[in-house]
């Protein structure tokens, strides 16, 4: 394997992060987008949708990731849907591609529309293992990073550090690591359709697994 990681060819990989207002969904989308656009060098568009309420209501962030310039910035057929609330899961499941992956927070989503899904109790993990429920979104980021074959752990963590104030960086990196570890344990590898080449974007970074 060459020293310099080769960028995996992507053609409109569509991803939706959804849940409730206050869960940090848009921050999560912003960090994920920043890391993939600036750290990894992909073309990324991140759009957001939220209600007019100051708090509560639904919230979602959509990302399109591509090796080529992106025309339409929103998503139509999802490769990955992350649902952190039952409502979001119900509303957006139908936008998944036939081979798309559904990732849910099992502590928030009781009924999944299918039994083919990747689930972890993110909210419970953030509360019990990290001790701060607000780290939920970064925990999810860790799990998403594991699942995306073209996303590198180190660069993702760098984006987390750049986006958050120093006071809360450490605890969030802890949450990121936990999310990544749990996902590696329970999710298995990324779906084969997402892997175009044997050579993954960040093969060299796997060695530094914490």
């Amino acid at each position: 394997m060459s020293k310099k990681a080769k960028m995996q060819e992507l053609n409109r990989f569509e991803l939706r992060l959804s849940g409730l207002g206050g869960q940090g969904i848009i921050t999560l989308g912003k960090i994920l987008g920043t890391a993939l656009a600036l750290g990894h060098g992909y073309y990324v568009t991140q759009t957001q949708s939220y209600g007019p309420e100051a708090r509560g209501g639904s919230s979602r962030a959509d990302l399109v990731i591509s090796s080529h310039p992106i025309s339409y910035p929103k998503t139509e057929n999802l490769d990955l849907l992350v649902a952190l609330s039952q409502e979001a899961c119900n509303a957006y499941y139908r936008y998944l591609k036939p081979n798309g992956v559904l990732m849910v927070d099992t502590s928030m989503v009781a009924n999944t529309p299918t039994n083919v899904y990747k689930g972890l109790p993110f909210t419970t993990l953030a509360k019990d293992k990290i001790g701060l429920v607000q780290t939920l979104n970064i925990l999810v980021l860790g799990a998403v990073t594991h699942l995306l074959p073209f996303a590198g752990q180190r660069r993702m963590k760098k984006a987390v550090e750049q986006a958050l104030p120093p006071k809360i960086q450490e605890i969030n990196i802890k949450a990121f690591n936990l999310g990544h570890r749990e996902a590696a344990k329970h999710f298995g590898d990324a779906p084969a359709v997402w892997l175009e080449a044997e050579e993954m974007a960040d093969a060299e970074e796997d060695t530094e697994h914490v």
Partner: peptide
Amino acid sequence: EVTAHTREK
């Protein structure tokens, strides 16, 4: 709103 609230490189 879409143009204003899209993040891009």
